[in-house]
Design a protein around this nucleic acid. Structure first.
Lengths: 144, 144
DNA sequence: GAAGATTGATCGTTCAATCTTT
DNA sequence: AAAGATTGAACGATCAATCTTC
């Protein structure tokens, strides 16, 4: 058993993820589809009750800042994939409401994204290895 | 043994890495240090023979585009961390030459970065788990 | 005063076009 | 013509300041 450097595990994680992610973004763009970040936003809205979330909640779920949520929502509204709806309960807030066009886009994106995950990632791993990854990476809790 | 969804492994990888990375970038910025991408550039130059690489080679090693290399090098030269040296053998090319100030910055960054890797990542994993991650993630070969 | 969201300004990244050398 | 690098323009992200509502 040879002694390993712990930092090599981090380096491997860094490089593997970064290149995989880059490759997927490239493939999405090549098909004129939005980024995976946008996919995350659409998917998060779809899962929410009523297909809507307040900007602040949306931002927390997908880990992006307030003004970034505003800017992304701006574009998504322009393209008709969400609608901004004033929040009646708390008039400071704004709902991001997924439209049927937004739902369709999410599904269309999944057609490509899901295939990329299979081809570029899952196909290289056994079921046991999938399980292991979930377990090991799940142990990593970020401390603030 | 419960059946798992393969996509959950990808989702875990995605979220864990993204948040870890974000947290580290925040910590670097909080100490007025450059991004991890810049760290990668400096470290790659330091490892190269003569502490220098042509822009095109540098770009390939750190997986960034030509014009991105130009822009980053522009800033690194302004701050004195690299020098642009015309390539004599092939006059189309330009060397990025690490300066002593650049080397010092790389080391200073490592003081923080190395600690972050330990605190936020390695400390949550056993040695065996480190080894496993390297093996499993190493199997993932990106296809173009 | 604090929380939610927006805006103008700034900064960094990316695209397409360009220039030089091979 | 192709490879290496650069540049202006467009685009996207981020910061600080602002506005409204709680």
């Amino acid at each position: 058993v040879t002694k390993i450097k712990k930092v090599d595990a981090w380096a491997t994680l860094f490089k593997t993820f970064t290149r995989l992610h880059q490759k997927m973004e490239d493939s999405m763009k090549a098909r004129d589809l939005p980024t995976l970040e946008i996919y995350d936003v659409l998917w998060t809205l779809e899962q929410a009750t009523g297909h809507k979330l307040r900007f602040s909640d949306l931002g927390e779920k997908v880990y992006i800042s307030r003004c970034h949520v505003t800017r992304i929502s701006e574009r998504l509204e322009k393209s008709g994939h969400i609608k901004r709806v004033p929040c009646e309960i708390d008039r400071r807030g704004v709902w991001a409401q997924l439209t049927s066009s937004g739902l369709a886009l999410r599904k269309k994106m999944w057609g490509v994204y899901g295939q990329l995950i299979e081809e570029q990632f899952s196909s290289h791993l056994s079921e046991e290895e999938h399980r292991l990854l979930i377990k090991v990476l799940g142990q990593v809790k970020i401390e603030y």
